[in-house]
């Protein structure tokens, strides 16, 4: 495996005896959209603040492109673009002046690049207006623009869909996917919006009370060979269970003319054929795939902020 662009190793943050982040270890390769998921107060923003050097690390180490953020800050941060919490800009300056301000802080970011980025985030029409006249969605776009000015290897976005309308969310999602796949950059997104993350990310980490609970790969729309609970709506449940018993398939009644089986894709087709040949009307077949939300509530135990 190629060298990860970010590596967090046993990262711990203690403030006044309270452990906010507890031995967090993560790796993130280039070209991946990584979701950082957790309930409010779980430590998502604290972790991000440590990754960009805004707060010190009590214990452990964060490496970005092979450079320690604590020891070689300037070398490490060079490859990072980020929005931490809200994209706060200088409100008395125009969007363009804000971008030029940050462009001046990087060697080699030209005015042409600034204009390119403005086009990319779709702010051409309003870029010369003062930021105080911008809507939250426009500020979010400007925030993304300043984060990608210097073509970073790692893009860190803290709750990026906050304040965006559905069209804006979709646009951001497509854009992030493109950035990660075409430009090969790693995107680290934090959120508590599960459905959103499911659509956006290749992999998610779930964090609760400062501890990493689970890291899982999201399948996306790819068919799974896993057996899942499948509900079948039929006209005669008892006859259906009898017919399925003939092909060694254990089905249980589920009420309202429904029966439940454990089946994968192939088996579902076999079951359907068997039911139809037994003269049973099949009204519907539905696999109960767990959404990320279900999984999330399962691992976090639906617990509140603790």
């Amino acid at each position: 495996m190629e060298q990860p662009v970010v590596r967090l190793q046993n990262v711990t943050k203690r403030i006044g005896g309270r452990t906010i982040i507890d031995r967090l270890t993560l790796e993130l390769p280039l070209g991946e959209v990584f979701g950082f998921l957790g309930p409010n107060g779980a430590g998502k923003t604290t972790t991000i603040r440590m990754m960009v050097g805004l707060i010190s690390i009590t214990d452990g180490e964060i490496w970005i492109d092979g450079h320690s953020i604590a020891k070689e800050y300037e070398k490490a941060i060079k490859h990072v673009g980020a929005i931490v919490e809200n994209p706060e800009m200088y409100k008395y300056l125009s969007g363009y002046q804000n971008l030029m301000h940050f462009a001046r802080m990087f060697p080699g970011v030209t005015e042409a690049r600034v204009k390119e980025v403005v086009r990319l985030v779709g702010l051409e029409g309003r870029i010369h207006d003062k930021v105080k006249t911008y809507s939250l969605g426009m500020r979010q776009r400007l925030g993304v623009a300043q984060a990608i000015l210097h073509k970073p290897k790692l893009l860190i976005l803290d709750e990026p869909t906050n304040g965006l309308d559905p069209a804006g969310i979709r646009e951001l999602r497509d854009y992030l996917r493109e950035l990660s796949k075409v430009e090969g950059i790693a995107v680290f997104v934090s959120s508590h919006l599960l459905a959103e993350m499911e659509l956006m990310c290749d992999r998610v980490a779930i964090i609760q009370n400062g501890k990493l609970i689970d890291v899982r790969v999201l399948q996306g729309s790819k068919p799974s060979s896993e057996r899942v609970r499948t509900l079948i709506e039929v006209d005669r449940a008892d006859a259906a269970i009898g017919a399925l018993a003939e092909v060694d398939c254990a089905a249980q009644p589920d009420g309202n003319g429904m029966i439940a089986v454990e089946a994968d894709r192939e088996l579902t087709a076999v079951i359907n054929a068997q039911l139809v040949s037994a003269g049973i009307k099949v009204f519907g077949i539905r696999a109960q795939i767990k959404s990320l939300e279900d999984q999330f509530l399962e691992v976090t135990g639906g617990e509140r902020i603790g």
């Binding site: 050097g53 300037e74 060079k78 931490v84 919490e85 809200n86 706060e88 800009m89 409100k91 802080m105």
Partner: peptide, 12 residues
């Protein structure tokens, strides 16, 4: 204004 965050996360 919160701009300190965007100001500090630069290679300086």
């Amino acid at each position: 204004s919160g701009t300190i965050k965007l100001l500090l996360i630069r290679p300086w």
